[in-house]
Simulated assay, not measured.
Amino acid sequence: MTDLATGPLADLIADRLRHALTPSHLHVSNDSAQHRGHLGDDGTGESHFTVTIESPEFAGLNRVARQRLVNRALADLLATRIHALAIKATAPGE
């Protein structure tokens, strides 16, 4: 498994996803600097993220169902701390 998290919120995202989905690959990228000064930038430097995740939990699921699993694992953070989340979710072997 590969993890890259930069900052406390990125670390928390990675921890939540590891616990909920047991990924074989996980990469959390903090994209907030690209959105500095835009709507949704709260000034913390931790508002916009991309998650690339591979998990056996995604086998047989379509893209929307996979994204729902990720969103469910991060629901409270999406409601309070994450403004934007891009998700790239695959099953092993895809």
Rank of each mutant, 00 (worst) to 15 (best):
E46A: 14
N30R: 04
H25I: 08
V28P: 00
S29K: 12
S55L: 04
R66H: 06
G45P: 13
G37A: 05
S47D: 12
R36T: 12
V51I: 13
L69D: 02
N30T: 02
E46L: 07
L39M: 14
D31V: 02
V64M: 13
R36V: 13
D42G: 10
Q67Y: 09
I53V: 14
G45W: 02
S24H: 01
V70R: 03
Q34A: 14
N30P: 08
H38R: 13
G40M: 12
G60Q: 04
N62S: 11
V28M: 00
V64S: 11
D31H: 04
G60C: 11
T52K: 15
N71M: 07
R68G: 06
S55E: 02
T50I: 08
A59F: 09
A33H: 13
G43N: 03
D42I: 03
N62M: 03
G45N: 05
I53D: 12
D41R: 09
H25N: 14
S32T: 10
F49A: 08
G37K: 10
H35P: 04
P56L: 06
E54K: 03
N30K: 04
V51H: 07
R63Q: 14
S24K: 00
R63L: 14
F49P: 02
R68K: 12
N30S: 06
L61Y: 05
S24N: 01
S24V: 06
R63A: 12
S29L: 10
E46W: 02
S29Q: 14
S24M: 04
S32K: 00
N71R: 15
V70G: 01
G43R: 02
H35A: 11
T50D: 12
R66D: 03
H38M: 15
R68C: 03
N30F: 05
D41I: 07
S32I: 05
R63Y: 05
L69I: 03
F58D: 04
P56Q: 07
V70I: 12
S55K: 02
N62V: 01
R66L: 01
S55N: 08
Q67H: 15
H38N: 14
L61N: 04
N30H: 01
G60R: 08
L39V: 15
R36G: 09
H35Y: 14
A33W: 09
G37W: 04
V51K: 02
V51Q: 04
T44F: 03
F58S: 10
R63P: 05
V70E: 00
H35V: 01
N62L: 01
S29N: 08
L26M: 03
A65H: 13
E54F: 06
R36E: 13
L69N: 04
R36K: 13
N71P: 06
V51Y: 02
V64L: 13
G43I: 00
H25E: 13
T44K: 05
Q34Y: 10
P56D: 13
E54S: 05
N62W: 00
A59V: 11
I53Q: 06
F49T: 09
N62I: 02
G60H: 06
G40L: 09
